[in-house]
Design a protein around this nucleic acid. Structure first.
Lengths: 181, 181
DNA sequence: TCAAATAGGTTTAGATTCGATACTATCGGT
DNA sequence: ACCGATAGTATCGAATCTAAACCTATTTGA
């Protein structure tokens, strides 16, 4: 019977994922955007400064960086995002949302109704990290749950990898280097 | 703080969905199939006899029926599925998995590791039906949780829409006419 | 009864995306 | 200075997606 339950969970997950994709697709159409473009904007609205690059988006969405690069060119032309070259490592370009992009992501949050679902947050979080571990996938979690995150004082944080100070805002964002603590 | 929690859930959902998509995409590549093709096969492995049509798949996956029709043509050529014309309504063609298709879906269940997640089943189910209601989306649930399902005796079921008898196997499958009880 | 409307499905055309490859530029180490 | 690795872009062919037109079967309704 254990196996049959696992199958059931897998199917619920499948359905949940399909449902979510439908909602985003519908929203994207209404906004005159492509599905991937909305996904990219959403990601940029929640990722931290170590994870706002073409390669990171590629890892997150599971598409080749060439494809993401093209989508980003379009989003940049349409003034949804801007690129900023890293001063320390000039190979890297940091992406960030322009007002138009921020507007889209907040409209998206409004359009997807999830009232009453906030009780599920801890379970979803666990499920997520369980799946990641079992399937040996890259991190993408918040610094708050990362084993590299150090907290020398209340509301003070330091990333163990970069040794940089992080604000309370920072540690709520998603990082590609995340490893569960 | 309520709003911030809803946003958090939305982001977990987003991430869960992206993760799931990556797993399927990876699996599809290994199998030499396209992402959509795997999704279609998976759906056909869990839908009931009222929901095994082009239009139903289109509603489930949120893509146009033209697009689904094309994917089905490929899957039929490659002997993953077969089509059978409905005798009562000859506009309708019922789709079902051939051995090759069944093999793919069972390999998929094996490849996606979800150990320990079965505790989450009831919550996921609730979340799902909550999202569907809030966003006024079509059903796609099992007959067991459908308000049209009647049970005149133990392990005996009748669909209130079609008035047909349903077996215990039947009522565990997903139906497009589903409405929560 | 029979024409009109509707519904399931396919086809077509044009645009978009995807993945693979090749290429440039930069960084880090030796 | 060289070499390998990394970040990102450019390009090409194949595949997909959407929208709309189209076909056929069924249902509606006067």
């Amino acid at each position: 019977m254990g196996e049959s339950n696992i199958n059931a969970v897998s199917q619920w997950l499948e359905r949940l994922s399909a449902l979510h994709r439908n909602l985003i697709r519908k929203f994207a159409t209404e906004e005159g955007l492509q599905f991937v473009h909305v996904e990219i904007l959403q990601y940029l609205s929640v990722c931290n400064r170590y994870s706002d690059t073409t390669q990171a988006i590629s890892d997150y969405l599971g598409q080749t960086k060439g494809s993401i690069s093209q989508s980003l060119r379009i989003l940049e032309e349409k003034k949804f995002v801007k690129r900023l070259q890293d001063t320390a490592d000039r190979r890297v370009f940091h992406l960030s949302l322009l007002p138009k992009g921020i507007a889209v992501t907040s409209r998206m949050l409004e359009s997807i109704q999830l009232d009453g679902a906030d009780k599920l947050e801890p379970q979803l979080k666990d499920l997520l990290s369980s799946i990641q571990k079992k399937n040996e996938l890259k991190g993408f979690g918040t610094c708050l749950s990362c084993r590299f995150n150090q907290s020398p004082g209340k509301n003070q944080f330091v990333c163990g990898i970069t040794k940089e100070k992080l604000s309370l805002e920072d540690v709520k964002k998603i990082c590609r280097e995340h490893e569960a603590s």
